[in-house]
Simulated scan of single mutants.
Amino acid sequence: MLNTILGIKKEVNQRFTQDGTRIPVTRIKAGPCYVVQIRDEKKDGYHAVQVGWGEKKMTKIKKPLKGHLRGAKLEKAPRFLREIRLEKPLGDEIKVGERLKVADIFQPGDQIKVTGWSKGKGFTGVVKRWGFKGGPRTHGQSDRERAPGSIGQGTTPGRVHKGKKMPGRAGNARIAVKGLTIQAIDKENEELLIKGLVPGAQNGLLIITKTGKTKRFVPLMEVGKKEIEETEEQRTERLRREEEAKEALVAAGETEAKPQSGQEEKSVEEKEKKTKEEPVEEAKDNG
């Protein structure tokens, strides 16, 4: 079966698992996805499946793409088209024009790889692009604070080596994040809830590929539910930690409430001095 699907990044939020752990969760819209074309090794030289995500009007696309989509018999044109390479043919498992469902490919607890395109930062300097420290801020070098410094040698070799880190465009690169976990699947809305963060901006295209299973998977807690599902050992350990934290807070409060003896003596002496000085000043005024 096909192990890859397309989607777009919707939002990043936080949720709690059933053991009470707070985790970052990314919501991905992974449908509708359609099979547009199936490539064969005899005809094309390799095995692949062309998948389309999203929907837009046929009037918004050009005639060559309309002819390409004619074989899939789709009512609307896909918003994104991507080709997924395969090691071996899928046979009769999928057909052209078939709609791919998220629940048929993924299950909660699956480990996945998400590929996306990072946010473009434009033309940036070496400090932002490569993390350079910059030049000194003193001794009359006020204009060298974010400068790259020397970029090579002199007469030998008399050129700048290839791969030298210099200013240029940053971001807008293809990035793959591995080791992410599917926490939940919304079959009705064709959405995935993924533990972790994925590259790209909101509504950016993502390619989600299944890589395996997570060994220690803990499902998400239901929204609005406050009870933590835990074993007796976990409960006793949690209560012990809570008691230790309370005792530490009480001990810290007692030390703050008790002033030092030297400070008490100074405050008493200052009060006595003030009481002695006040009547003397009044007598001088009367005199």
Rank of each mutant, 00 (worst) to 15 (best):
N203Y: 15
E227T: 03
V96C: 08
I151E: 02
T209M: 08
L69M: 07
K273W: 01
K133G: 04
V96K: 13
R85D: 14
E277V: 14
T209N: 08
C33V: 15
K162V: 10
V268G: 01
T59E: 11
T236S: 03
I38T: 07
I38S: 07
P24Q: 09
Y46N: 09
G149E: 01
P89E: 08
K213F: 02
G179D: 11
G20E: 09
P219I: 00
L249C: 13
E75I: 14
E282D: 13
A30C: 14
I23R: 05
D104H: 05
G262W: 07
L81H: 08
G67S: 12
L2R: 06
G158Q: 03
K274F: 09
N13M: 15
E98G: 12
G67T: 03
E55D: 09
K225Q: 03
V198F: 00
G122K: 02
A103G: 07
M221R: 07
W117N: 15
V177Y: 02
L239C: 01
E264H: 14
G71F: 03
P259F: 11
A257M: 06
S150R: 11
V250G: 03
T26H: 12
R159V: 04
K57E: 07
R39I: 13
P136T: 02
I112N: 06
K73Q: 14
D40Q: 13
L192H: 04
V218D: 06
S150I: 06
R129K: 05
P64M: 03
R27N: 12
G71R: 05
E83M: 11
R146Q: 04
G149Y: 09
E277P: 09
H68E: 15
V12L: 15
G196R: 04
K66G: 09
R39N: 12
F80M: 10
A283R: 14
